[in-house]
Amino acid sequence: MSEKSRAGGAAAPRRPRTPSALLKFVMAVSGVFLLLYVVLHMIGNLKIFFGPAAIDEYASWLRTILEPALPYEGMLWIVRVVLLVSVIAHIWSATVLTLRARRARPIKYAGGSYRVKGSYAARTMRWGGVIIALFVIYHLLDLTFGVANPNGVHLEVYDNIAAGFAPERWYVTLFYVLAVVALGFHVQHGIFSGIQTLGWSSNSRERTIKVVSTVFAVVLTLGFISVPLAVTFGVV
């Protein structure tokens, strides 16, 4: 006598895995930290429009926040540690989710892939994320460690920027702009997605959230690209 139920999914039972909803929560929370940092970074960058001294002073100030309660560069390191943890958490959960997605959707449709209107940002989160990560590495080598910068002197922020985005290095500017645009798309869907993941979205709020995240992303992108463009085109 054969007895069986066919209420079964794909493969043989495996060890229960961490729910994707939890990984998405990790992504959302780490994303919030990264986003906060990016916003402050963008605002800081705009100091360059107030002259070389303004941005150099700002860089020094960053190192003396809350002195003497904190040692020199204390706050900076706290921020760096939080950022590093966030980046690792963000990339790690993204990787796990991507691998899961591959397994959950192993075969592409021959009749064309299903695309929702206006979902470009959503569909490019993964590759966009990779581009941003590569850019961040270059960006650190360029303006933090200075090894990829023609000037490359610690705390000579203005000179480093001016040298890095000099007109003859237009390709660096171009790369920067493209990376920031990728960041803009990433942030646009990231904000919407994060709000959804944290459970704060609703049908009535959905439109507003989408508009706000788009405006936010556009402002952020413009803020960031204004600096290298201004340098390359000799505005500052």
Binding site: P16, S20, R103, R105, S193
Partner: peptide, 22 residues
């Protein structure tokens, strides 16, 4: 239900909205 959804091999949501449109 979330755990069972997970163990059945479904992927995670990236809020693309494709589901609601389809």
């Amino acid at each position: 239900m979330v755990q069972t959804h997970e163990d059945a091999g479904f992927g995670g949501c990236t809020n693309t909205g494709a589901c609601a449109t389809a």
